[in-house]
Each structure stands twice: as C-alpha cells, then as structure tokens.
C-alpha cells in the first residue's frame, strides 16, 4: 500500500522540520567552527569560512594528546568490558554450578548501585593505588558491566546447547569452546556491545574529571572543558572546533552502527 501524495508531503515536512530542530545546535556549532570570531560576535552570517579555528585549537591545546588518551581509555575499557562480560555471560549460559543463581542476582543488584553514589570511596581507592593520572585509574573500574553481561547472555542463549554437547563429545574444554565457538558465533553482538562501550567511555565526564589532574592522561571531554573555561577571549570558533573534534569519532561510530545499536539496546535492556 502506498501513501497518498498529500500525506507524504505532510510526513516529509514534519520530518524535515524536526530533523532541523534536533540537529540545529550541532549544525550551528559546526558552522561556527569555521567562522571568524568577529562574525560570531556580531551575530552576522559567515562572510568567510576557514580552518583557522581548528589550527588554533590544536596549537593552543594538547588536543592530539587528549584525543590519544581518550582513544586509549575507550579502547581499553571496551576490550575489558567485552572480555569480562563475555566470560560472565558464558558462565551464566553454559555452566551449571551451585550458587549460579545467587551470583546472577548479584549482577542484577549492581544495576541498583549508581556509580555516582560510590564515587567518594572510589576516588580514595584510586588515589591510594597511585592510579590518579594513570590509565588504569580511568579504565579498570569500568570493566565489569551488568548491562553487557545481560546483553551477551541473551545472545549466547540463542546458541544451541547441542553445539556445546558436540564439543564435549570430542573432549573440548569450556574455555576452548568459549574461545573457538561462542565468541566467533556471537560476533555481531560483541561488536554491538563494543560500539556501545566505546561510545559511553568516550563520553565519560565525571570520573575523568576527578581522576586526572594534569594533561598526561586527561581525556578529550575534560580537555574540552579546559578549552571552554580557559579560552579568555571567549573565542567561540575555537571552542566549537574543539567540540566538533570531540564528537566526530562517536558520531561516525553511531552512523555506522545505528541499526546494530538499536537492536542491541532493545535486546539487552528489555528482554
């Protein structure tokens, strides 16, 4: 059944208007990042567009260093989450042992504890471990995730039990089966979780703010805050170019994996 033309027009207009409204702040920032500061301050339309703001941002701030730090932190967290939650999900799906249900409840219970509520002792732990301004301090606390475990558990449950049994008959152990069969078979959901993990770690704010005091491991989000607060001239073009640089990696990731993420989120969360 095709829609009548009039209805189509209504829908497209609504779509375009709402897309513009939703995207406006980002779009304005994007345009501003190429604009002359004078034009911005006078509120006029851009007379000329240039990469000057980007050059300035990179010159005046260790943006590359921040980006690199963010990359390291996000990749390490993502890998850590993938390993830990796939191991845990494997145990919940393929292993039978006493206490499994209690431990499963423990995992559910972690969802009731917001990280923000335990941030004070966490800060002290990291400080006492001498992990302030260190990559481990930024990453290790986030390796274990209940959401990731549940998402993978849902997926592992769809692997037929017979695959495990066939491997038992030829004498394959659990760890090898996990490595050689479960991980490859569940590749897509691992990618989904990985994308989600990368996205959230890249965008982390409160914890990097607390656990970094200098530029050695400072992430780009905190770098952006520095840029914004230290930019004395209130040079909006530079600030916006910094912000655009910050969001480009995650936006690309989102555009590539939107379908996957959508499926993963609904699966892990609702079922």
């Amino acid at each position: 059944m095709t829609m009548p033309l009039s209805k189509k027009i209504v829908f497209y207009s609504l779509l375009i208007i709402s897309a513009l409204a939703v995207f406006a702040p980002a779009l304005m920032a994007f345009v501003m990042s190429f604009m002359d500061n004078k034009d911005i301050m006078t509120g006029s339309l851009p007379k000329s567009l240039s990469f000057d703001n980007y050059l300035k941002a990179f010159e005046q701030f260790p943006l590359l260093k921040y980006l690199f730090n963010s990359l390291i932190v996000s990749v390490v967290i993502t890998i850590g989450q993938l390993i830990l939650s796939s191991l845990a999900a494997y145990a919940f799906v393929f292993l039978e042992f006493k206490g499994r249900d209690i431990l499963f409840f423990l995992f559910i219970a972690t969802m009731m504890v917001p990280f923000e509520a335990s941030i004070i002792p966490n800060f002290h732990i990291i400080r006492d471990l001498n992990w302030i301004d260190q990559y481990p301090g930024l990453t290790v606390p986030f390796f274990a995730t209940a959401f990731g475990t549940f998402l993978l558990r849902q997926n592992f449950k769809q692997i037929p039990k017979e695959l495990r049994e066939a491997s038992q008959i030829v004498g394959m152990g659990d760890f090898k089966f996990y490595l050689k069969v479960v991980l490859p078979v569940a590749k897509t959901s691992l990618v989904t979780l990985g994308a989600y993990g990368f996205l959230t770690s890249w965008n982390m704010y409160l914890w990097p703010l607390l656990s970094t005091t200098n530029d050695t491991v400072r992430t780009v989000q905190i770098g952006l805050k520095q840029l914004q607060t230290q930019e004395q001239l209130n040079d909006w073009g530079v600030i916006m170019s910094g912000a655009i640089i910050v969001i480009i990696p995650t936006l690309i990731l989102l555009f590539l994996g939107q379908k996957q993420l959508q499926k993963g989120l609904t699966e892990g969360a609702i079922k």
């Binding site: 017979e162 695959l163 049994e165 066939a166 038992q168 008959i169 004498g171 078979v185 590749k187």
Partner: peptide
Amino acid sequence: LPPKDRNLSMVFQNYALYPH
C-alpha cells in the same frame, strides 16, 4: 566418565554444526 572418555560419536537432531 565424561563423554570424551567413552569413545563414541553423536549426531544431533539439529545437526549441531558450527555455523562459523
């Protein structure tokens, strides 16, 4: 004894082929 020490093979209804 675990399955591997019983020296047998098994064919399953859903074939249990490794999809990857």
